[in-house]
Design a protein around this nucleic acid. Structure first.
Lengths: 204, 204
DNA sequence: GTCGTCGTATGACATCTGTCATCCGCCACT
DNA sequence: AGTGGCGGATGACAGATGTCATACGACGAC
């Protein structure tokens, strides 16, 4: 038997993080050698502990698990990357894959899949929920341009056009134009729905 | 030593649920005798397994952990209730307490507090984060009336006034009135902000 | 028995939002 | 050299949204 697999666990909610560590701790061949609660601590921790696999939640302070994945993939290409998320958003899957992730798991999958995924990525396999993969392919790429996305993201908290214009250094008319095109591309009828749909798809 | 404490675990994300079970399983005096993924399965499971403590997540399909807590509290008053949530929203704490909860934990608290809380509630203690308790008291009660809350909740997905009116069997004018008063009570400038603030406070 | 609050409704008004046509400069591609 | 997309802008217009005054019946508190 090979030496134990060294795993880094990145997840901001301590209780969940430590519970996942307990879960992985039950496996003989897996050892959680590092835990971090922020996206921007992933890279240094991965390097310091010479981990084999990094298990990354997406929603984290500092930076997202996807951004962290990209950093690790670039700096430590040998480290396998498992992205773990609450939301099975097709857009997330797409970005995770583009960031170099080897596995994409949703938190409502059975717990047993976690350890399995760790072993599989180490064996060179990729682990992706086929349903989600299909959904990601079916819905196509994010149709929003960079600016449209930025404006929509900024509008998500209920800011008015005037506030958005000031915050983004744009004219009010331009803000309205971007929101208007975003609304049309997403086939909805107002900015609130646009925000909701873009969020659901992981396009925000 | 008394017999092991029988715990029911209610949490919709399997991976998190099973991980928490693994965590509690490490404690000698605690046994997870039942797991459910839906709020509306809590009561029957609690009854069937004669549990001592029910550990309830708030965000669940079926019904919320808070509603489930109220049901259990009424039907099985001897069962101790621990509410566990991702969001430390003061309004949640308030409702949980009103529903008869004995402990209120946020998921970003250290994992060790979970088992401790289970033991404490069984000993008759109440477990509440003091910071959160202070916040809940400081911000006062939910200022929204039942109808205002319903309309705001329905408006959260970006529905237009016409759709809201149809869905709630109200006139469009009435919908606007409710949203307008809600907007004023929350001291914000439009429905989107009102939704955001009400959510943050746990008033939705 | 009156007062305040809630739920519901209307009408008028001002402002905000969404749409559309049109324009400019820039850059990439052919 | 021309085409097309993107970022940015303006102006006009229609419709949605937010505000306010006002009204009425129900109900609970005092």
């Amino acid at each position: 038997m090979s030496p134990t697999i060294k795993v880094l666990l990145a997840e901001d909610q301590s209780m969940v993080r430590e519970a996942l560590a307990a879960l992985l701790g039950l496996e003989d061949d897996i050892e959680v050698v590092a835990q971090v609660a922020r996206g921007d601590e992933v890279l240094t921790a991965a390097r310091e502990h010479a981990v084999d696999v990094a298990l990354l939640d997406i929603e984290m302070p500092g930076c997202t698990g996807i951004e962290a994945a990209a950093q690790v993939h670039k700096a430590l290409p040998a480290v396998k990357l498992v992205v773990l998320t609450t939301f099975g958003r097709p857009g997330y899957l797409r970005s995770a894959m583009e960031a170099g992730a080897d596995a994409f798991l949703v938190k409502d999958a059975p717990a047993a899949q976690l350890a399995q995924a760790v072993r599989k990525v180490l064996a060179g396999e990729r682990v992706i929920d086929p349903t989600l993969a299909a959904a990601a392919l079916a819905e196509g790429a994010n149709p929003l341009t960079d600016r449209e996305r930025e404006v929509l993201r900024a509008a998500a908290d209920g800011s008015t056009n005037a506030e958005l214009a000031a915050a983004l250094h744009l004219s009010q008319g331009t803000v309205r134009n971007y929101l208007s095109t975003a609304i049309q591309k997403l086939a909805v009828r107002n900015r609130a729905e646009a925000v909701r749909i873009a969020r659901e798809k992981g396009w925000l």
